[in-house]
Write a protein that binds this DNA or RNA. Structure first.
Length: 682
DNA sequence: GATCCTCGAGTTCT
DNA sequence: CTCGAGGATC
């Protein structure tokens, strides 16, 4: 075995030969390791070769090539440095997601119809696993990797080249003799295998904060690290699944494309198969779902593509997805665990709701410890008891929910839980209203925390840095005893500074933000007050109708009911709110502290007046609220759900049921790019 | 009085 | 995302 040595070569010809030799050995080892699972070289030998090559290149900088394995790792970006962004040559769209067999059937039938094929005509699909990682788009020029982008919003991605380069099974130079396309974009998924993730967890558990909760988030986090050397220590892999822009001739089929990618040195997702029709797709899906646990990677479904590229082109694409590819997801995972306790929470409205505390359970990538039971009626209906074994599902793959109780596993001594007789926070009396229990004590601590958090939230006064943690702490410290106290915090500067985690800087920031938050729109002001039945939408209706706080406060029930969307219940709630002496004091105190809602000006008519927007899926660049604000500024209104009244649906990535409904209703559907074009790029 | 929309509110975790 | 209930409409 050769030792790493100082560069002592007599002339650069030998040095250049040796460098080429080392690069070849290292590449072979990388390829063996990632594509066959083991390498003929020991880790120590590999490191030695690598060190030698690096030393050689240091001594002969002219020998450094862009595709040398040493170039996988660059220096860290300066702290606080941001990743640059760049345009994809061809947009990186998403694929329509389906959950059920009937949906898949519809999809395949639609393809037959569009191609004017009889339903029984054979049609070949290529099926591959749908990997759960982060997509990336690699640009190769004349066979050499020059850039790697994240998906971003589909049009523009972040330049992650320096980090992507560290992935060892990602070719820095395409394998084979060429000729290579002048430019080609290779798309794939960056993932951590289950084994690699487990190793990483074991290795880092002792050293750092143990933040590796699931593989997908770890991948996303890793690619954003500023120091490529840290990225290199995470055993990421790149699995290619498609090409974007190609200069020169394309490929005849997805199968041919895969062969070429493999020949160029890419790893491909396996198992994959060329199958026939819906039956083939379904069989592939069911087979993988059944073997899910045994596969080396996390997957959330399969992807099926019409194999022939000529047919793909005939099918074309909708505004946001190709018509020739579908993602057929696996059924949401059910998990089984035990109910440790059934607690009660008090929300900002005083509603006391039951929460099941669960034995921690890994479900679809996260650890679930709590599941809401919504109300005591539901709890009784499902008959959930402490000690019960229950089936948990993440509704919409997000919110944990108790699906059912496995009664046969119930311990003998498990009485049904009793709803609390007093408020769990303040021990005050409870009132029953419908299926809900309410704590009617306005000074109840948990309620106060909830009301203040709501007041400070984005849709209301938008006070950054005043979240649940901080509010809890300030209430505990006695600095907040009522809503209006929020704006009196400036008078308690000294007391604030005494608290843990409140330094001069954070106190100053908070006080500045409070000062800035003192002139909200009337709608946001109203919403922040937390009047029953009055959310953002109703607040806006009221603000538009009355124009000022004074006129609203003076309105009686009849005046209130004249507002569109306000009936007897809402009118009563609003009138009662303004009649209550306690609330009048709050309003007076706020006014004294300089908190004054702005007069509502009638919404300016704009180019989008009369149109109603709904947002679904995630928009890369904008939050949903920001997107909504943009269309409102142009004269449009927004709604929460899809209905006949809606005119436009903006579908971001991973759009769900709303999109399907919108398609049914034949509404105008905008993808993110179209939306940004409409509202004018920020 | 019944039915359909829509809004409010609560919910988990990173 | 889901449930429940208020409001509008027939």
């Amino acid at each position: 075995m050769r030792k790493a040595q100082a560069p002592g070569y007599e002339n650069s010809v030998t040095a250049s030969q040796r460098a080429a030799e080392l690069r070849q050995q290292i590449r072979t080892a990388d390829d063996q390791y990632y594509n066959r699972g083991h390498s003929d070289l020991s880790d120590a030998t590999y490191d030695a070769l690598f060190t030698e090559l690096r030393a050689l290149e240091a001594a002969h900088p002219e020998l450094v090539t862009e595709d040398s394995p040493t170039q996988r790792v660059g220096a860290p970006l300066p702290k606080g440095g941001d990743f640059a962004t760049a345009q994809h040559l061809e947009p990186m769209g998403s694929i329509e997601s389906l959950m059920t067999e009937p949906d898949a059937r519809d999809f395949v039938q639609r393809i037959h119809k569009l191609l004017e094929l009889p339903p029984e005509a054979p049609l070949a699909f290529f099926c591959e696993p749908k990997l759960d990682g982060t997509s990336a788009n690699l640009l190769y020029e004349h066979g050499v990797l020059v850039r790697g982008l994240s998906r971003g919003d589909g049009q523009t991605g972040e330049d992650l080249t320096r980090n992507l380069r560290t992935i060892r099974n990602l070719p820095l130079r395409l394998a084979g003799a060429g000729p290579f396309p002048e430019r080609i974009e290779i798309r794939g998924e960056v993932i951590l295998s289950k084994a690699a993730f487990a190793r990483l967890q074991a290795r880092e558990a002792t050293s750092s904060d143990g933040t590796f909760r699931n593989a997908r988030n770890t991948v996303a986090g890793t690619l954003k690290l500023l120091d490529p050397r840290a990225v290199q220590r995470r055993p990421l892999e790149f699995l290619a699944f498609a090409v974007g822009h190609v200069s020169g001739p394309g490929f005849a089929s997805h199968g041919a494309l895969r062969q070429q990618l493999a020949a160029w040195g890419f790893t491909l997702a396996e198992p994959a198969a060329l199958v026939e029709g819906l039956a083939g797709i379904t069989a592939f899906h069911d087979d993988l779902e059944a073997r899910r646990e045994q596969l080396p990677y996390e997957l959330d479904g399969i992807v099926a593509k019409v194999d022939a590229v000529a047919l793909q082109q005939r099918l074309g694409r909708t505004a946001r997805t190709p018509r020739w590819a579908l993602a057929y997801k696996f059924a949401p995972r059910l998990g089984i665990t035990r109910v440790l306790a059934i607690g009660a929470q008090v929300g900002r409205t005083g509603a006391v709701t039951p929460v099941a505390q669960l034995e921690p359970l890994e479900l679809a990538g996260v650890t679930v410890q709590n599941a809401s039971l919504h109300n005591w009626g539901l709890l009784r209906e499902r008959d959930v008891r402490i000690g019960d074994t229950v089936e948990i599902q993440r509704a919409g793959d997000v919110i944990p929910e108790v699906v059912r109780v496995l009664v046969e596993h119930r311990p003998d001594a498990a009485p049904p839980p009793e709803p609390p007789s007093v408020c769990p926070a303040c021990r005050g009396p409870l009132q029953e209203e419908g299926k809900f229990l309410y704590c009617s004590n306005l000074d109840c601590r948990d309620q106060l925390v909830g009301r203040i958090v709501h007041l400070a939230s984005r849709q209301c006064f938008d006070i950054e840095g005043l979240g649940p943690k901080q509010v809890e702490q300030l209430v505990q410290a006695g600095l907040l005893r009522s809503l209006e106290d929020v704006f009196a915090l400036g008078e308690h500067r000294e007391a604030l500074l005494q608290l843990e985690r409140w330094g001069a800087r954070s106190v100053q920031n908070l006080l500045q933000r409070l000062a800035a938050a003192r002139t909200p729109s009337l709608a946001r002001f109203l919403h922040g007050l937390g009047i029953r039945h009055v959310g953002l939408s109703t607040s806006q209706d009221l603000a538009r109708h009355f124009g000022s706080l004074e006129r609203l406060a003076a309105a009686d029930r009849d005046n209130l009911q004249a507002v569109d969307g306000v009936g007897p219940e809402v009118a009563a709630a609003v009138a009662e709110f303004f009649a209550a002496e306690r609330n009048q004091r709050t309003l007076q105190a706020l006014a004294r502290l300089g908190v004054v809602p702005q007069q509502e000006t009638a919404a300016a008519a704009g180019p989008l007046t009369g149109r109603v927007f709904v947002f679904t899926g995630s928009l890369g660049a904008l939050s949903r609220d920001d997107a909504a604000a943009k269309v409102v500024l142009l004269g449009a209104t927004t709604a929460n759900g899809v209905s006949k009244k809606v005119t436009d649906v903006v579908a971001g990535a991973d759009a769900g049921s709303k999109l399907a409904k919108a398609q049914q209703l034949g509404l105008r559907i905008l993808d993110e790019a179209a939306f940004l074009a409409l509202v004018g790029n920020p």
